[in-house]
Design a protein around this nucleic acid. Structure first.
Lengths: 207, 207
DNA sequence: GTAATTTTGGACTAGTTCGTCCGCTTGTTG
DNA sequence: CAACAAGCGGACGAACTAGTCCAAAATTAC
């Protein structure tokens, strides 16, 4: 995640340069999450981040490299969130319930919603050479769930016959699909229903 | 669905005009599904549909109206598919299993995949006045599932305590999320896992 | 302290895209 | 057949955007 293509250095970066670069990426991520990739142009980004045009070029020679930087940023964000201690590596049904509740009970699912899903769906059809990079992030995410489910099996908390990968896919799909439906309906209900149904399904394997 | 904003007539359409308009919409839908809204520009569409620039303007005064036309087309496509006799109104678990199998066993989930999900995620953040229109389509889709599940309850096929809307949301979310993951991973597995897990969950309520 | 390097500013350009415009062709109506 | 409307073709223009370029300011290295 550190040494990605998006992290290509123009030459070398001083501390100040790294700070400016991070500042640009953060603002770009916010703008893209709010308005989409296409609507996030040079000018808006300059105004939002308070930088000049040459700075964008200096740290990101083209838009593709900027998007890669944003993907890295979003990937760190979502993976870091799921690795937080509060979820204890997803080794219990309660952890999954807490995870679902976080989005539903926070009352602001879209603000805290992972931006990498919507970003992915927006650029998945472009010819950007981002596919493998993106696939890796979702694999890591799935593995967090899978590892937790495997540990639950070892601990005898769920049936040994279930396929952890399959359930991990179910959880991420429920989240991504639920998020899309919630955005379309401007209502949290579809997300809540999808996430709680997924947790309920996990619960049917409890021992 | 018929008298939508996207169906605004320049003045009146003869049979020939309607044919040309439908031809443009069909090609636009294909191009957008394959390359996304942004990459589908005037020129590509002219070449693909074999029409002139003025024809695009004639039938669709601006790009937004064209996108609305494509949404209508995709909505008819997905709703028509789900109302097909083969699914018998989704009044049995087998119908849901057949529905899931269709995408998995056809071997070409992306070709037959509903284009309205990816289209929705791409334009959901734009300022286009499409939100309500899009929400209505997904409501109708959900209601197809909901009605089937309610009938299953009346027929005593599933437990009367389950919430049909909730399960309907689960199915659509599993499909949309699974599709996204499948496209990212270039692998049908996440879609298969999500859909089959959803059907399995429904099965836990069988009586 | 000075030379080299990095960071920054902002105007400018080349390319793209949506939509307009004018005129021609086809067909329909009275 | 005449007048009018709809369908059609393709060039053109206005607006927008990614990326370039020339310097200046700040920082670091020697």
């Amino acid at each position: 995640m550190e040494k990605s293509v998006g992290s290509q250095r123009p030459q070398r970066l001083t501390d100040r340069g790294q700070a400016t670069r991070a500042h640009i990426v953060k603002n770009a991520a916010d703008l893209i999450y709010a308005n989409g990739v296409h609507a996030t142009n040079n000018e808006f980004l300059r105004n939002a981040a308070g930088v000049s045009g040459s700075q964008l070029t200096h740290y990101f020679p083209n838009k593709e490299s900027l998007i890669l930087g944003v993907i890295d940023w979003q990937a760190d964000s979502v993976l870091g969130f799921h690795r937080d201690d509060r979820f204890a590596g997803f080794d219990s049904i309660d952890a999954f319930q807490d995870w679902a509740d976080f989005y539903i009970l926070s009352g602001r699912p879209f603000e805290d919603g992972c931006g990498i899903g919507s970003l992915a769906s927006e650029i998945i059809k472009t010819d950007l050479d981002i596919h493998d990079h993106l696939a890796l992030v979702f694999e890591q995410w799935r593995d967090i769930f899978r590892d937790g489910l495997e540990r639950m099996q070892q601990l005898g908390r769920i049936d040994a016959s279930v396929d952890p990968v399959r359930l991990a896919h179910m959880f991420i799909a429920a989240y991504q699909g639920g998020m899309l439906l919630a955005q379309i309906a401007r209502d949290i209900a579809p997300l809540r229903d999808a996430l709680y149904a997924a947790v309920d399904h996990l619960r049917t394997f409890a021992e």
